[in-house]
Amino acid sequence: MTTPRNKLTTIPKIVAEIRDGMTIGIGGWGGRRKPMAVIRELVRSDVKDLTVVAYGGADIGMLCASGKVKRLIYGFVSHDIVPMDAAFQTARKSGTIECSEVDEGMVLLGLKAAGQRLPFLPTRAGIGTDVEKLNPWIKTVRSPYADGELLLAMPAIHLDVAVIHVNEADTQGNTVILGPDPFFDDLFCRAAKKAFATCERIVDTSAFHDPMKARLNPVERSVITGVAEAPLGAHPTSCGPDYGFDGKHLAEFTKQCAAGEWENYRKTFVAPNTHDAYIAAVGGADKVRALPLPVM
C-alpha cells in the first residue's frame, strides 16, 4: 500500500512561508495553546506589515511589541490569568496599528465564511453597538424574507497562512487536541491558503486508531500543509493536558512591555533560536512540564 505524502517540516520553514503584508491566523485562545515557537521565530524574522487574526494572547502581544503588525482583527487580547497585555495596549493606544475590534463570535463567522468560500455570513452580533461605526469594512445585509431584519454581513476573513499548536500529529497531517477545548483551530485552517500545525509530539498514525482518540482530531488533514514537532512549543501559554500556562512568565512579559523593556525580554527569551536554549532560559523542560493545568 502506498502512503500519503510526508508533511513533516520545520519551524523556520513555516515562517519562511510568511511574507510582508500577509494575513495570518493564529489558533488557540488567550493564554491557551498558542503556537509560540512559531511566533518567536516570526519575531526573529524580517517579516513586517502583517494582518493578524486571533483570539489574542501572548501571540498578539509579542507581534505588537516587535512591530510586525499593520492590522489586528480580534475580539479580545488577554492572557486569562493576566487580564491585560501591555504591548497590545500600547499599540492600541498609539493609533499606529489598525485595530479591527469586533465581537468574538464575528471572528468565528468571518473564518467560517472563508472556509465555506462564501462572501459573508449574517449575524445579529454587533447590531446596536459601536462595532458598526468603528468597522466601516463590515456592511449590513437585509433579510430577503418577510421579517426584513437588518443584520451585519460579516465578511470572509481569508488567511494566507494559519498556524495552530496541537498535542499530537502524524507526518500526514492528522492532528489530535487532547486538551479540553479545540477552540477555532479548525476554522483557522480551513480559512487559510496554507495551514501549519506544530505539535508536542510527532506520533505514528496508529496512535489514533482508538476511535475515542480519533474523535479528538479537530480538522481534516486535507487542509493541513505541514506539521512540525515543537515540544513545549506553546509555552508560556498552556497546552493541556501536557502543561498549564506559565502565569509568572506571562506576568513578567507584560510587565517588561509595560515598562518599555521589550528589548530586554526579546534578548533573553526570543533571541535564543534553538528549542533547548529557549527551554533553558525559562527554567528547563521539567519545570514547564510541571506547570499545573489551569483551574478556573
Partner: peptide
C-alpha cells in the same frame, strides 16, 4: 476609540451577548 487613553480587552462577546 481611535486613539484611546486606556485600552482594555476588546469587544469580547458583549455585542453578541447583548442582542441575543
Amino acid at each position: 476609540p481611535k486613539k484611546p487613553k486606556a485600552a482594555l480587552q476588546g469587544m469580547r462577546g458583549f455585542p453578541g451577548n447583548t442582542v441575543n
